[in-house]
Amino acid sequence: MELIWASEEFVIAGRPYTGFPILLTDDMESFIPANEFMRHYLLRGAIGSERSWPSTGRAMYDYLSFLQAHELDWRDVDRGEAKALVAAYRDYSKKECGLAVSTIRQRLHYICQFYLYSLSKGWINRLPFTTEERKVKRETGFLAHVDSSGGKVQVNDVMPRSHKSLPKFLSLNQVRVLVEGVKNSHHRMLIRFALKTGLRREELATFPLAYVLDPDKAGRSERNIKIVLDPNDGHGIRTKGSKVRDIYISRDFLSEVVKYAQVFRGERSSLAAKPSKTLFVNQDGLPFASDGKGIERIVRTCGSKVGIKVHPHMLRHTYATHTLVVLQRRKSNIEPLVFLQRQLGHSSIQTTMIYLHLINEIADNAILAYDEELNDSIESI
C-alpha cells in the first residue's frame, strides 16, 4: 500500500488537483474503492477545502495499511462485534501507537464515512459499526429553550468519547519573554502581529502587503483601523471558508507595521526576482506557503529558544483570551463576545464562548492583565 500526492496532470472535470491523495496497491494499481470515495468526499461542495485532503488521505492509508499488515480485508464486515475491523483499528491506534484521542476520532470519522459510502455503492452489505445514544453537554445559547434532544445525540459506537480541554494561552510574562527573546526582526514582527490580530497561520502567511497602509498618509484619524479581509479582492488573503471579515488594528501598531514593511521587509523582499504580494516573506524574499507551515516552524522554534512551548494557534488563543478580559472590564457599547467572534472569524458564537469559560476559571489570576498596547488597540471600538 502506498499513498502518493497527485501532480498537476491529475484532472477531474477539467480541473487540475495538485496534491490530491491517491492510494495505490502493492502492484502500483489504484485502490479503486478508497480513491473513488475520496473524490466523492473531498471534492463535493460541502467538503471542498484542500486542507482536508492530507488528513483524509493519511487516515485511509493508515487504516488500510493496518488491515493489510494483519491480513484483514476491509470488506469483511461480518466478523462479529468482538472482532469488528474499525474497533480493532481504534484500539490499536490507542494502545499500540499511543495516538491522541482527538487524532483517533478524526481518523475514525473519515473511515466511517468511507464505509457509509461503500454501503451506498453496494460494496458491502452492512456497516462494521452501529450507532448509540450518548449524552452531551450543550452550551446555553439562542433557541436552547426549544431544543428537544435532551442533550442526547446519535454517534457511531466505535468513536472514543471526546474529552474537551480548554485552549492554552500565554500569560503576560510569557508574552514578554517570548517577544523580547526573539532577536530576528522578521520573526518578532510576525509574532507580535499574531498577538495583536488573532489571525490563523494561513491568514498570517497570506496577509497582503496591500492591506498595510500608512494611517497618517491615508488621512485616517481613527484610533483603530479597520481592515477588510476579503479573499475575493485579488490580493490573495486566504480565510477559513473564504469568508470576508473585518479586523481592527490600533493606529500605533499599524504605523509600526508600515515601518517594518518599508525597512526590514523591503530589504528582504529585494532578494527575490519577483516582488511578493504578502506582508511576511521568508529568508529568500519569497512568500510563505499558503498553509502557513513555515510560520508554524518559526513560532515553535522561537518559543523553544526561550523555553516556551508555543505555536501560532496558541498566539491566537492568547489574543482572544486577554482581549475578552479587557473588553469585559470596560464599560462600552459593544458586546465582548460578538466583537471577538467577528474578529476571530468564528461561524458560531458557541466557538467563541470557550474563551469565556476559560477566563471564568482563572479570573483570580494576575495573568489576565494584558499589555497596555493591546488595551489601547481596542479602547475606542
Score class of each variant (00 low, 15 high):
M1A: 12
E2C: 09
V11T: 15
I12W: 14
D26S: 15
M38S: 06
G45D: 07
I47G: 09
I47V: 14
T56M: 09
D62S: 04
L64D: 00
A69M: 08
W74E: 05
K83V: 10
Y89M: 05
R90D: 04
D91E: 14
K94F: 07
G98C: 08
L99H: 11
A100D: 05
V101N: 08
H109F: 08
Q113L: 10
E132M: 12
V136K: 01
D147L: 06
S148T: 10
G151Q: 03
R161W: 06
S162P: 01
H163M: 09
P167R: 03
N173Q: 07
N173V: 07
L178Q: 02
L178N: 01
V179W: 04
L190M: 13
R192F: 00
A194G: 04
R200E: 02
R201K: 15
L204Y: 05
T206M: 03
T206G: 03
P208Q: 05
E222A: 00
K226G: 01
I227N: 01
H235T: 13
R238Y: 01
R238K: 08
K243G: 14
V244Y: 03
D246M: 04
R265K: 03
K274H: 09
T278M: 04
F280P: 00
V281F: 10
F288D: 10
A289L: 10
A289S: 12
E296K: 03
R297W: 06
H311Q: 14
L324Y: 11
L324N: 04
R329V: 06
Q341G: 12
R342K: 13
R342G: 14
G345A: 02
H346L: 04
H346G: 02
S347D: 11
Q350Y: 10
I354G: 04
H357M: 06
L358G: 07
N360K: 14
